[in-house]
Amino acid sequence: MNDVSIAAPTQAEEQYMVAPARENLVIEARKLDFFYGKNQSLYGVDLPVERNKITALIGPSGCGKSTLLRALNRIYDLYPGQHAVGRIVLDGNDMLTDRKSLQRLRDRNSTGATVDEEPQASRAGSDLTQLRARVGMVFQKPTPFPMSIYDNVAFGVKLYHRKSKSEMDAIVERSLRRAALWDEVKDKLNKSGLGLSGGQQQRLCVARGIAVEPEVLLLDEPASALDPISTAKLEETLMELKRDFTIVIVTHNLQQAARISDYTGFMFLGKMIEFGPTEDLFSNPRAQRTRDYVTGRFG
């Protein structure tokens, strides 16, 4: 079923990749380096993400899994000094093709440390709002906006489309239903989103994210601030959502990754140590470090 290819280990650390077939990928990071100012925190990371699957990123804290996630929709662009070098390919289009990013890639190629083909400069790579419309994100702590539940969900849609009231009502209802929140909030759509419980707030953020119909939904430890029951509900929602969306989730909870994901990537010290189907990675890890981590020997 999968086009199995095992990449040779790079540099000192061994690295095992079992990537899905290329034609099934929706978004992909290739040989991605990431820098906070002068500090490098990702080293040549590859991350292939298959359509309509859940891909989980695991690893000890500080390993770069959140950084990788934040690179995928370039949210890091908010902060001067942070930048990524390499390629982020969404549906065959390079997303790191603004002038500065290309220059950095060229510089890296010229040093010969990691050489990659250079993409053409394109509009896709400089139109961040379009990128973010297609790659949505849900954060660790719930981030309801200071407005009503209805307006929270409608917020993103209004950015891109002019909709009549009835169309918007339909979108809001469908998004809330898909996030399994509709029944709990349908009578108080005009109340502030800040009045919901933590788990509800997080599902509201999911609803807000999917209302704009992104292709990929990124979740950064979305359950870490939630109680077990809310977590279970959120996981259930995600399993439902993968029929329509592609999901990448960062989690520090190994059971959660094993329960819900189809692919898992294990990261350590800014490198992708092992990537493959979740079952394989947990039952038969190839790298020593992965084995130590999933069996609980460190991390």
């Binding site: 891109y160 002019r162 119909e213």
Partner: peptide, 16 residues
């Protein structure tokens, strides 16, 4: 489920 595909209808020329 494609009622809202990005290519559809009226994307606002905006932001910049």
């Amino acid at each position: 489920m494609t009622a809202l595909a990005v290519s559809e209808t009226s994307i606002k020329p905006r932001n910049a």
